[in-house]
């Protein structure tokens, strides 16, 4: 469970995030949608203790993320390319992360084999290629797989579908859903793609100017609610 309490973040006296309360339960796939600059990435960074809040806290299970590092044992994330060590080969990078999380090489290999369709033969086995030499889409795949390979209880992804080709987007949706079903993983996923979000998320929040203005249980009608919100907003502008 992730619990956000009275969380406020400002830059140069401008409040960019202000969430009084938000609880994400185990097993939920929590989607975060909003326009550019709405505060999605700021919220994700606060959840990962990469920026400090001006006020309030994020608690993961029983750990306040800014005070303890225990939550890192069961959390994995991929926000952007600053999560990749781009002078390593993908194998070296996966190996490095696996060792950080105490995974045996055989287990890592077996888990990576599960991504063969997602990698489409373009990521593993390219022995002379560093991550920085891969295309943007393949770098995105490496980042997402590096988070999933640890089989975390909490998974945080920022715009995971960005840069992926249509086939890979479909495969990724299936991987995330299956993974959630099999492990009961709590997932927080931000995206601009309403179709993807409504297809995989069990709950969706709309964030605008740092405030969560709607919190929707996805019972099949989320798409129409989201579409009406964003089209109304466009018309009112």
């Amino acid at each position: 469970m992730i619990k956000v309490t009275n969380l406020v973040k400002s830059y140069k006296r401008k409040t960019v995030l202000n969430i009084s309360e938000l609880t994400i339960h185990d097993g939920e796939i929590f989607g975060l949608v909003g326009n550019n600059g709405a505060g999605k990435t700021t919220l994700l960074r606060l959840m990962l203790d990469l920026i400090s809040p001006d006020r309030g806290s994020v608690t993961s299970e029983i750990h306040v993320v800014a005070r303890s590092e225990k939550w890192k044992d069961y959390t994995a994330s991929y926000l952007d390319e600053s999560f990749l060590i781009n002078y390593l080969t993908p194998e070296e990078f996966f190996g490095f992360i696996a060792e950080e999380y105490g995974l045996a090489p055989e287990l890592t290999e077996a888990r990576l084999a599960g991504f063969s369709e997602f990698f489409n033969g373009e990521v593993l086995g390219q022995k002379k290629k560093f991550i920085r030499d891969f295309s943007r889409g393949n770098r995105q795949k490496i980042g997402i797989a590096s988070a999933l390979v640890t089989e975390p209880r909490v998974l945080i992804l920022d715009e995971p579908f960005n840069g992926l080709d249509p086939s890979s987007q479909i495969v990724l949706k299936r991987i995330l859903s299956d993974f959630n079903r099999a492990n009961g993983t709590l997932m927080v996923i931000s995206s601009h793609d309403l179709n993807h979000i409504t297809e995989i998320c069990t709950r969706i929040a709309i964030i605008e100017k740092g405030v969560i203005i709607r919190d929707i249980q996805n019972d099949g009608n989320a798409m129409s609610e989201l579409a009406s919100y964003f089209s109304l907003r466009k018309e009112s502008m």
């Binding site: 960074r45 959390t75 994995a76 999560f83 781009n86 950080e100």
Partner: peptide, 12 residues
Amino acid sequence: STYFDGVMARKN
């Protein structure tokens, strides 16, 4: 610095 977010977000 180019990958420090990742270092700090992971278990280490």
